[in-house]
Structures are given as structure tokens and as C-alpha cells.
Computed example of a mutant assay.
Amino acid sequence: MTSELLDQALVEEATKKSGLIWVRGAGEPAARALWHAWHEGAACVVGDGPGEQPLPGLAEGGSAEVTVRSKDKGGRLVTWTATVVRLEPGSERWEAAVAELKGKRLNASDGEAMPARWARECRVLRLEPTGGVVPLPDGDLAARPVPSPATTREAVPAGLHRLLLRRRKS
């Protein structure tokens, strides 16, 4: 019982404080970073509309795996399982979640009209913790980069700083 309460507290505190969560919907090969708002015991997300974040694999009633990173160091803190619940536009729960999300939405072009646009064109979902915390992995989970013709820059030439310093003096 105590372990379950500690897991629940860890999930809630870590998710509240993190600006992004990594969510992998059922059947998706990889997790996707999503901005969210923690509201009444669940992470709420909005998306799948024009100008909003995509929500692939997050079907109503499905499940998802949510990974929360440390705000300070960026490392994985906890991974938890969630049930995905779609909120119906205009419902009391939808209004409360949208009020919370609206305050966290950055760079919105339509300001006060945003909730109406979300009701028409987007989905608002609650990711409700199921109580399951996934154990942290032992190994490295870094994925190989996608092949690309792009290259990295080479090292700065040793005498470059002297050239730049000479130009500034004259």
C-alpha cells in the first residue's frame, strides 16, 4: 500500500513540474514529446487540429505509456501507464481542463478564441494514471540517428580567435 502511494505521489509531482511529457500511444513505435497541464489527477493534452500538436496512437479508451523527465537535468524520472479518455467539448470536465491548458499554451495566435477553436477542430484528452509505474531500464535507450547527407561542422581553426580579435581592435 505504501509503495503504491509513493508511486502515485512521484507520478503526480514529476508530471506537474515537467513542461513536456513523452507519450507513446498503443501501437506506436516511439514516444512523442507533448506539452500538457496536470489537472485533477491526470495529464491533459490538446491536439490533432490545425496548428496544434499531433496525438498519434492516442485513441479514446486506449492506453499509453508516459515518460516524465527531470526539469533540471532532462533525465528520465518515471514512466507510468495511462488510460486515454477523450473529453467532450462543452462538458464540465472539458471546460475545467481547457481552462488549465489555456494558461499553459504558448504562442497561440487566436488568444481568447482558442477554446472555441479547440472545441471545433481539436481533441482534448486526459491521460489518467492506472497506478502502474514501469521500472526504469538498465541500458541505454538512445536511438540511432536517421541516415542523412548532412554533416557536422569541423573544429574551429586554432588561429581563428586571433584573427577575430585583430579585426575588433582595428
Rank of each mutant, 00 (worst) to 15 (best):
D110I: 15
D140F: 06
V23D: 10
P115S: 08
A42G: 05
R168Y: 12
G90R: 09
A158D: 13
R69C: 10
L87T: 03
L10N: 03
V46Y: 01
G103T: 05
L20E: 07
S109I: 05
R162M: 09
A99R: 15
V156R: 15
G25C: 05
K17R: 15
G57Q: 09
A14T: 13
A43K: 04
L127I: 06
R167W: 12
P115R: 10
E60V: 00
K104M: 07
E88S: 14
V78K: 10
E100D: 12
V78T: 11
R153E: 12
L165S: 14
L20T: 06
E92Y: 02
K73T: 14
H36D: 05
A116T: 04
S91A: 08
L10I: 09
E60Q: 13
T81S: 05
M1S: 13
G103C: 05
E65H: 07
A119T: 00
G103Y: 02
G159A: 14
L136T: 05
L165P: 00
K71Y: 06
R126S: 11
S148N: 08
W118D: 04
K169A: 14
G132E: 13
W80D: 01
A158I: 10
P50K: 09
P149V: 09
E112F: 04
R153P: 01
P29D: 10
A31P: 00
G57I: 03
L10H: 05
H36K: 12
C44D: 12
A31H: 06
G49N: 08
G111R: 15
A30N: 10
V23K: 07
S3F: 07
K17C: 06
E154I: 08
G49K: 10
K16M: 14
Q8T: 13
G132R: 13
L160R: 15
E65M: 07
P145V: 00
V11T: 14
L5P: 00
D48K: 07
A64C: 04
A113G: 00
L77H: 02
K16F: 06
M114N: 04
V68G: 01
T83D: 03
V11S: 07
E92V: 11
A9V: 09
V124Y: 02
R153F: 10
P56T: 06
G49F: 11
V124M: 10
E13F: 11
V68S: 01
G75H: 13
W94D: 00
A113R: 14
V68P: 00
Q8H: 14
E60L: 01
E40P: 00
G51K: 08
R166Q: 14
L77D: 00
T79H: 04
R126F: 01
V84A: 06
P115Q: 08
A143R: 15
S3C: 01
G47K: 07
S70T: 09
L125V: 06
V146Y: 14
G47E: 05
A142M: 12
V98Y: 02
L6C: 02
A96G: 07
W80A: 01
A82S: 11
S70R: 11
Q53F: 03
E121Q: 12
R153G: 14
A30L: 13
C44M: 13
H161R: 15
T15F: 11
K102N: 12
L34C: 11
P115C: 03
V68Y: 03
G47Q: 07
G62T: 04
V133N: 01
P147Q: 11
R69W: 04
L77E: 12
R76T: 06
P56L: 11
A97E: 02
R168T: 12
